[in-house]
Design a protein around this nucleic acid. Structure first.
Lengths: 138, 138
DNA sequence: TCCTAGCTTAGACTCTGTCTAATGAAAGAT
DNA sequence: ATCTTTCATTAGACAGAGTCTAAGCTAGGA
């Protein structure tokens, strides 16, 4: 039983077999998958699952506040079951692999008042870019 | 004569009328446009310019290192003629307005070695989100 | 001026994601 | 247990952003 499934059960939300497979796929990964990667993996467990269901379900999980949607590479969205608001992301420029990281300092503190231009700044997230161990070798 | 055109002239790169219109459109703006917005504006000066040329040219400017490509909203890319590598972006959650900001500390220093997971980390950029002065009022 | 590399063009194509209309399954009421 | 209503799932059509292709055009050097 994954933690994400537990969290989703608390909402008034039908837990269908398709939704369970999607939630378990998301939650079991240490990297953040795209919708198509989740579809691939879900198809191994439930071959007849449809693309629309995967997209619908991911959007609903995001709307429920139990999954974060990441727009990091400009190609496809990735989904993060970790909803803590103090984490950031490390992305491989070679293959697009994405994972959570934690920093020592809160980046909000690094933006001085005179650089806020009258904005009410609520949130800051850092995107780190580089090459993952696999892509460094090739 | 825009500063971006001056910078582009330093490269072995044909300065065609199309490329000049695109460079001047980009450089004259205070916000960061999408490729389609640039196409719209370029068409006012040169009605027969093609979509492919705008996309090709923007990609070449990025490859020359004279323009930065931003993936901030997951929909379409935006182009920033400011290529200083130590600036970040402040985005309004209300209207999407985007502007450059500078921070006190380099965010790369806030990622400890044991959070790098074997990656060769090259770059870090911060996205600040909040409400701009106009959107705070309404 | 002529030549040639390389630029521009229209339109087809790909990829990611959304929408629609029809079918299928769950949960409360009887 | 069955009915009924509501919501979920499905295949496929559609939409938006961006890339590719093949043909013609042009900038700039010889």
């Amino acid at each position: 039983m994954s933690d994400l499934v537990t969290r989703l059960r608390r909402h008034a939300w039908r837990m269908t077999p398709q939704r369970r497979v999607i939630a378990e796929t998301l939650d079991g990964a240490h990297v953040h998958y795209t919708a198509d990667e989740i579809l691939d993996r879900a198809c191994r467990l439930m071959p007849e699952i449809s693309r629309a269901t995967v997209y619908n379900t991911l959007n609903e999980m995001v709307a429920l506040g139990e999954v974060l949607e990441l727009n990091l590479d400009g190609r496809s969205k990735r989904y993060d079951p970790n909803i803590e608001h103090d984490h950031h992301h490390l992305i491989c420029d070679g293959c697009g692999a994405t994972r959570d990281v934690h920093t020592l300092a809160d980046p909000l503190d690094s933006l001085p008042g005179d650089e806020r231009h009258g904005f009410a700044v609520a949130e800051a997230s850092i995107t780190f870019r580089g090459l993952c161990p696999d892509c460094r070798r090739s």
